[in-house]
Design a protein around this nucleic acid. Sequence first.
DNA 1: GTACTGGTAAACAAAG
DNA 2: ACTTTGTTTACCAGTA
Length: 636
Amino acid sequence: MMVESASETIRSAPSGQNGVGSLSGQADGGSGGATGTAAGCSGRDVATGADSNGEMSPAELLHFQQQQVPVSVAMMSPQMLTPQQMQQILSPPQLQALLQQQQALMLQQLQEYYKKQQEQLHLQLLTQQQAGKQQPKEALGNKQLAFQQQLLQMQQLQQQHLLNLQRQGLVSLQPSQASGPLQTLPQAAVCPTDLPQLWKGEGTPGQPAEDSVKQEGLDLTGTAATATSFAAPPKVSPPLSHHTLPNGQPTVLTSRRDSSSHEETPGSHPLYGHGECKWPGCETLCEDLGQFIKHLNTEHALDDRSTAQCRVQMQVVQQLEIQLAKESERLQAMMAHLHMRPSEPKPFSQPVTVSAADSFPDGLVHPPTSAAAPVTPLRPPGLSSASLHSGGPARRRSSDKFCSPISSELAQNHEFYKNADVRPPFTYASLIRQAILETPDRQLTLNEIYNWFTRMFAYFRRNTATWKNAVRHNLSLHKCFVRVENVKGAVWTVDEREYQKRRPPKMTGSPTLVKNMISGLSYGALNASYQAALAESSFPLLNSPGVLNPGSASSLLPLSHDDAGAPVEPLPSNGSSSPPRLSPPQYSHQVQVKEEPAEAEEDRQPAPSLGPPNPSTMGPPEDRDLEEELPGEELS
DNA sequence: GTACTGGTAAACAAAG
DNA sequence: ACTTTGTTTACCAGTA
């Protein structure tokens, strides 16, 4: 198997790589290989985390990785989906939007955390100064210096992060501002007040800071995860108010910093909130600020324990910083990888997709993906097969079911599938059909089908033996694929009627079910179904404008109108009432002559009894089409 | 629990 | 003899 795979890879590589280099505009075989490798690497990177870049020690790396996955995943997906699942559920544009959101969230988290840290460090300075009276002078001086250095370091780190992010074009705000557009994000997403929980059970006075860091690091993930409950509204805004420091808050901070030698502003203390001490791991209840100050001076005076805690806090911040840097780097790579999808909003595909996305079989109106993802239909969660990335058994391709039109999906994410090592969520049968229908004469040899797979999907550039076997298996198994002996060999064609018949397997023989289902569907869903079918039928022409409406689609698709059942049947089709049933050779001949008539008349037995769902709003062609197309598209 | 569908693996044969 | 193509069977998993 592996031997065959290797040989096939070599053989199919040149042809398959031709279209691969589109990312860089290259089209020769050499760049294709590199592109494929890059795609594979990026996919692995996304799944398993960034590789070591030499800037981190093994321990740090381990620690970082321990934090990284849960944090990032939690921030990306409140439902705790794996990246692969996210990838499958979300369309590439959605992924991009999500990544940007993740980046923004991390930025906000870091900013808030920096502020928190600054306040804590600053408070430490204050505490030292007050407690320093009982301490030896030079020791106090050293520690003060250390704290000041830490504070300075914190500020530098913060500025550096902001600069980095600005350089990436991800942030367009001034460092003094929390995060302009990001303020719409849930404030509780990363709540600094949760951070003290990291210190729960934190080290005893003599415990080394490193040990604490390990614990904190692990706890941090949990904190971040729990803090990422987007759905829940921020229930405690008051405690946040003096931590998050929206816009004018930095001035408060600076004023406090300036008044470091003075009294704290009455009623507000960065470590005091909700009547309790906010010192990491403390949470001692204090009735008023005075009591809190007293508690602070007694319990959190400048000693080894407090120093260790502060160091731990520092390391937590540093971990976050490292994580942010790593995530930023990864995000950049991912975006660079995905950026090849400018999505050139094809004007024709948009109406089709939008309507298809608007009305899903579930009857829900799915919002448009995002501004950055204008025209990608959402796949219903759970519909897409999961965890295909590693090449494991993949189930439940979505193409045939529901109304996810393979053509429009492919048209929109063509570049994505071409370069990303992601398994397309379509069945082999639908892919084979697509490959065949893309050709002018609607026929392909087996090898040409192979080439189409490798050309269109990076995923099919590996494990060739497996999927090729599957292709052959599907070609032989499904009646909709007709083998035709040609002068130059055997070619494969698609019997659309068989293909359409195959799609509504569960609906056949249950007219009542069909009827109930149709009656339960809105016109929008029906229309979406129709348009989806139309889009699917017109994939080969999606790259040419004018497939906006059934009429133009049919006119541009002399042959494939049978594809969508009989949607565009009223159109020319040279009026022939078609020979209903063709033997394979005949059919192939029809294909070649492009005379595939508007048949499907005899296949539409149950249709007449169903009646048009909404005659007033739909034209006759749509009605007929929907009656036939709907079962397969909407229910299955 | 069952039927159906889809994916994967494998064996086998025929043809080039 | 080897590869490619094509067929068939079996098994597993997901879904209705």
